[in-house]
Computed example of a mutant assay.
Amino acid sequence: MQPYLAMATVCDFSVPGGENFVAGNGVFCQNTYGLCMDPKDGRVVSAFIVQALRGEPLTVFGDGSQTRSFCYVDDLIEGIRRLMEVDYPYPVNLGNPEEYRVLELAQLVKELTGSPSPIVFRPLPEDDPKQRRPDISLARRLLGWEPRVPVREGLMRTIAYFREVMGDR
Score class of each variant (00 low, 15 high):
residue 30 Q to A: 12
residue 33 Y to V: 07
residue 33 Y to R: 05
residue 33 Y to F: 14
residue 34 G to A: 04
residue 34 G to M: 02
residue 34 G to P: 09
residue 35 L to T: 07
residue 35 L to Q: 06
residue 36 C to H: 15
residue 37 M to C: 08
residue 37 M to A: 07
residue 40 K to D: 03
residue 40 K to W: 07
residue 41 D to I: 01
residue 42 G to P: 03
residue 45 V to A: 12
residue 45 V to W: 06
residue 46 S to Y: 07
residue 47 A to I: 10
residue 48 F to V: 11
residue 48 F to M: 11
residue 49 I to L: 10
residue 50 V to T: 07
residue 50 V to K: 13
residue 51 Q to I: 13
residue 51 Q to M: 07
residue 55 G to N: 06
residue 56 E to H: 13
residue 57 P to N: 01
residue 58 L to E: 03
residue 58 L to G: 07
residue 60 V to S: 02
residue 61 F to I: 03
residue 64 G to K: 05
residue 64 G to I: 03
residue 66 Q to Y: 06
residue 66 Q to W: 04
residue 67 T to A: 08
residue 68 R to G: 06
residue 69 S to H: 08
residue 70 F to L: 00
residue 71 C to N: 12
residue 72 Y to A: 09
residue 74 D to I: 06
residue 74 D to L: 09
residue 75 D to N: 08
residue 75 D to F: 14
residue 75 D to V: 08
residue 80 I to N: 06
residue 84 M to I: 07
residue 85 E to D: 10
residue 85 E to T: 11
residue 89 P to Y: 09
residue 91 P to T: 12
residue 91 P to Y: 09
residue 91 P to K: 10
residue 94 L to V: 10
residue 94 L to C: 12
residue 95 G to Q: 14
residue 96 N to L: 08
residue 97 P to G: 14
residue 97 P to Y: 11
residue 100 Y to P: 06
residue 100 Y to K: 06
residue 102 V to S: 01
residue 103 L to C: 00
residue 104 E to W: 00
residue 104 E to Q: 00
residue 104 E to R: 04
residue 106 A to G: 01
residue 106 A to F: 00
residue 106 A to W: 00
residue 107 Q to E: 02
residue 107 Q to T: 02
residue 107 Q to V: 02
residue 108 L to Q: 11
residue 108 L to Y: 05
residue 109 V to E: 01
residue 110 K to L: 10
residue 110 K to F: 14
residue 110 K to M: 05
residue 111 E to Y: 11
residue 111 E to G: 15
residue 113 T to C: 08
residue 113 T to F: 02
residue 114 G to L: 04
residue 114 G to A: 02
residue 115 S to L: 00
residue 115 S to T: 01
residue 117 S to T: 02
residue 118 P to C: 02
residue 120 V to M: 02
residue 121 F to Q: 05
residue 121 F to I: 02
residue 121 F to D: 00
residue 123 P to I: 00
residue 124 L to N: 06
residue 124 L to K: 11
residue 124 L to V: 07
residue 126 E to S: 13
residue 127 D to A: 04
residue 128 D to P: 05
residue 129 P to H: 05
residue 129 P to I: 00
residue 130 K to M: 09
residue 130 K to H: 09
residue 130 K to C: 09
residue 132 R to K: 15
residue 133 R to C: 14
residue 134 P to I: 05
residue 137 S to A: 15
residue 137 S to D: 04
residue 139 A to I: 10
residue 139 A to M: 11
residue 139 A to D: 09
residue 140 R to E: 12
residue 141 R to L: 11
residue 141 R to E: 12
residue 141 R to T: 14
residue 141 R to N: 13
residue 142 L to S: 13
residue 142 L to Y: 10
residue 143 L to T: 14
residue 145 W to E: 05
residue 145 W to S: 08
residue 146 E to G: 10
residue 149 V to R: 13
residue 150 P to G: 05
residue 152 R to V: 03
residue 152 R to Q: 02
residue 152 R to L: 00
residue 153 E to Q: 04
residue 154 G to V: 03
residue 154 G to M: 03
residue 155 L to R: 03
